[in-house]
Design a protein around this nucleic acid. Structure first.
Length: 502
RNA sequence: GGGCCCAUAGCUCAGCUAGGUAGAGCAUCUGGCUUUUAACCAGAGGGUCAGGGGUUCGAAUCCCCUUGGGCCCGCCA
């Protein structure tokens, strides 16, 4: 059984799936796995005939932890402030919105549509107030759980609350000193003493308590999370204990997922530069394929993503699955995967991606590419066609391995041919030069004639021609290929190689 | 120090949570197609399922150990 349905089939009743992120920087493909895993589980629960809703939390009240490599030095003064209170590196948005908004757009394109909830608003609207009060009242019990599970020791005057200093704006530098009438008094390292209203966004719970508190107030029943939270004594363990023994709420069913690695480079991190931003993925990958990369394997496996030839193979595989489905030859699991990968578009209207990656290297004009790709008799939606052409161009430019790329050689550029192959070129030049027609069919016919009269094996003859034009042994279908080039350029090139006897 | 994941054909992996004759795609080779969308069709070769032990009538699959690769936690989130 497909992993998503297998997971869902063990559940009963009505569900709310939740995931989220602290928008502290550019959101990359590795982060997509979290929300995708949530989406897959959400949809799988529905497939199993149960009701499900899906929420995505943007932890915009989390503090900026440090000056990340992509930030200017001047951000030093913002370290410790909530992300939503800091200006974005560019533009007029807040820091958190600057990073989360493009990601919300990315999710839309990926057909992921959770309800977006900003954690800062939960505090502002007082939704967490009661649980904050409960946490403070039961702080010894919480302290005991945290110390027992994580093995660390908390100070005697520890409070399960981080006030936001109303003077310096930091949420990590004020120390809670007391609690009465719904207000936490604090002393900040900036010298300011004040009070925070726990029913307003004047402070926050520390993560390990905030997580289970959010489960309870939002009614979360299923939550996927990365292995960083899932380690023994990690925040899921403590969250579960706090949720069940302090808040009296059953912890959500966990689903731990592995990371996405970049093939040959390692785990994706926003700080190390080893990553592909989520928005950049969509520049070269159809959204269905992004879904497919994540949906096809169980979350417990790490994904070694290869944006080069591995990516193209994946696209092929996906397109093949669609053909098999049409023929009714697909087993249940694979059918489920395709269903999960849907983005609401008709697969019939989507052109062969591998073919496009070739065509865009022959023709710089998108109209020509469209004409050729449509010559198979199918009608493609102009929008999708345009989008896929852009993707193919981006892939060739930024991700394609050398094998998949070619360059048309200059008229007087050297190439490596045997004497026999050179004769094929002379013959081809002679045949083409005598023709006035410059069409794919005519060129294809001419090349066949030229190779035949040279006495070489057809394959060797084609190698000679490809070596001459692009310096490689294979290439795109010859007739269409040369017809797309300027006739005089091709003839000059053939003439030069013909005369260039060793 | 602790936890998790991975190891199956040259490559990428499926099969493992129902224990029952080791699979797919790519690559290679053979044949076909008046030689191609870097195709397509038919067929072939190719594996001590990392190693060892255990349970079992039977183990790639379940349990234990070892080796190798990788990730996470032990600050914060």
């Amino acid at each position: 059984m497909y992993w998503g349905r297998s997971f869902a089939s063990k559940l009963t009743g009505k569900h709310k799936v939740s995931t989220g992120i602290s928008p502290s920087g550019y959101i990359h493909f590795g982060n997509v796995r979290e929300v995708m895993t949530g989406d897959i589980i959400h949809k799988s629960i529905q497939m199993e005939g149960m009701e499900s809703s899906f929420i995505y939390l943007c932890d915009d009240i989390d503090p900026l932890r440090k000056v990340y490599p992509f930030l200017p030095e001047s951000y030093e003064k913002h370290v410790g402030k909530p992300l939503r209170d800091i200006p974005a590196p560019e533009g007029n948005l807040s820091y958190s919105e600057f990073f989360i908004q493009p990601f919300i757009e990315t999710m839309k394109k990926l057909n992921i549509s959770p309800e977006i909830i900003r954690t800062g608003e939960l505090y502002r609207d007082g939704k967490l107030g009661d649980l904050i009060e409960e946490s403070i009242k039961k702080k010894d019990q919480i302290r005991q759980i945290l110390e027992q599970f994580s093995g660390r020791e908390l100070e005697n005057d520890w409070y399960p609350y981080n006030p936001r200093c109303s003077q310096c704006g930091r949420i990590n530098s004020a120390k809670a000193t007391g609690f009465s009438n719904g207000k936490v008094s604090y002393q900040c390292t900036c010298g300011f003493n004040g009070e925070s209203d726990i029913y307003k966004d004047e402070g926050k719970l520390p993560w390990r308590i905030e997580w289970p508190a959010k489960w309870k107030i939002l009614g979360v029943t299923v939550e996927p999370f990365g292995k960083d939270h899932g380690t023994q004594g990690g925040s899921y363990d403590t969250g579960k204990a706090i949720s069940e023994t302090v808040f009296n709420y059953p912890a959500p069913a966990p689903m731990m997922f592995e990371r996405i690695l970049l093939k040959g480079k390692g785990a994706m991190h926003s700080s190390t530069g080893i990553n592909i931003p989520a928005s950049e993925m969509l520049k070269f990958s159809p959204p269905e394929i992004i879904r497919y990369v994540i949906a096809r394997v169980p979350p417990t496996r790490y994904i070694d993503f290869d944006p080069g030839s591995g990516f193209l193979n994946l696209v092929d595989e996906y397109e093949r699955l669609h053909r098999l489905k049409k023929e009714g030859k697909l087993d249940e699991d694979k059918s489920t995967i395709l269903e999960i990968c849907e983005t609401g578009r008709d697969q019939e209207q989507i052109p062969d991606f591998r073919h496009l990656t070739t065509l865009v290297q022959i023709y710089s004009d998108d109209k020509r590419v469209s004409e050729i790709i449509s010559s198979d008799g199918k009608t493609y939606s102009p929008d999708i066609l345009h989008e896929r052409i852009e993707m193919a161009r981006d892939w060739i430019k930024n991700h394609a391995p050398e094998d998949s790329k070619f360059r048309i050689l200059g008229i007087k550029e050297k190439t490596n041919l045997t004497e026999e192959q050179r004769k094929v070129i002379c013959e081809l030049h002679r045949v083409l030069d005598s023709k006035t027609e410059w069409t794919p069919e005519s060129i294809h016919e001419s090349s066949r004639v030229a190779i035949e009269s040279s006495g070489l094996e057809p394959s060797a003859g084609f190698v000679a021609i490809y070596m001459t034009i692009i310096g490689k042994e294979r290439g795109p279908r010859l007739g269409y290929f040369l017809a797309g080039m300027d006739r005089n350029t091709v003839l000059s090139r053939l003439e030069f190689i013909c005369g260039d006897s060793p």
